[in-house]
Structures are given as C-alpha cells and as structure tokens.
C-alpha cells in the first residue's frame, strides 16, 4: 500500500528493464550470421557416393517421391546418382533412416532458398557437396 509498494513496483520494472538491456538479443542478423542448429537438424541432404550401393531404399522410403535415382551414372564401382527435389521434400528423415550403408545424411543447412525453381532440384553435383557459390549483394558476401 502507498509509497513503498509503488517503490517496489518501480524497482521491479527497473530490474526487468536493465536485465533486458544487457541481454544478448534473441534475433540474428540472418544472412551474415546464423544460429547454431542442433546436431539432429533435418536440413538438406548430403550423399556420400563412395558408400552408396544403388539399393534405392531411400527412393522407396520417400513418402513424397522427392528422390530420383539414376543407376547408369556411376562414379565408383556400384554407386548411383541421386536427384533431390527440394520443392517436394518434407524433411521427414525416412530416407536417411532407410540407408544402411552410411551414404545419405541430413545436414544442418536449412536456408535453401533459390531464385529459380529449377535450382531446387539438387543433382549429383550439388547433393554430394556442401560447398556452394557465395552470394553477393551490394558488395557484401554472405552464406
């Protein structure tokens, strides 16, 4: 009641304010800085062609038919080329689970946006590597 309770309220408010001012912001300066994604993040895939045996279990497991396999295209003895269609992929993780030869993994890369729809179909050249061309905008590079 009265003076002291008002003082208490003001103290509460100031405490809250000061704490917020010196806290690290919740947001990120996105294209230049990104949050650390957990290890299990189901982002885009990476295909290790050395281990692949062209068994096509990932293709059969996919519920949305986002994976296409080309068994003719061989880089090693018995591997195959995979085409991932990220316009369809729902990142459910069934293909990675189905792979028994450690040839397919999710990566914590989730910013997949492209300027062209066709670029979202990741062919064997893009799906086997995590490198990508850096984007430049007004002289600043990000990604």
């Amino acid at each position: 009641m009265g003076f002291f309770s008002v003082l208490g309220d003001i103290y509460q408010i100031l405490k809250h304010t000061f704490r917020q001012v010196f806290m690290r912001p919740f947001t990120y300066f996105f294209p230049f800085e990104d949050r650390i994604y957990p290890e299990r993040t189901r982002g885009r895939h990476i295909h290790v062609r050395k281990n692949c045996t062209a068994c096509a279990q990932c293709v059969r497991a996919c519920p949305v038919v986002a994976i296409r396999i080309d068994k003719e295209d061989k880089m090693y003895e018995k591997d195959a080329a995979l085409y991932f269609d990220y316009t369809r992929c729902i990142f459910c993780g069934l293909c990675v689970e189905a792979c028994r030869f450690d040839a397919l993994f999710h990566t914590p890369v989730v910013d997949l946006s492209e300027g062209d729809r066709d670029d979202l179909v990741y062919g064997p050249d893009k799906i086997t590597t995590l490198d990508r061309d850096p984007l430049e905008w007004r002289g600043r590079r990000f990604r």
Binding site: Y37, P38, R40, T41, R42, I90, F91, C92, G93, L94, E97, H106
Partner: peptide
Amino acid sequence: FEELTGSRHTVSYSTPGGVKY
C-alpha cells in the same frame, strides 16, 4: 523438440514399435 528430433514442428518421432530418437 528441435534438439530431440531435429525439427520444431513436424517431429516424426513415434514409429511402430518405439520411437526414433
């Protein structure tokens, strides 16, 4: 959720016979 399953909303956690992660 994200730490456990790798996804915030579409978790796909339970599977016949147990759980995935």
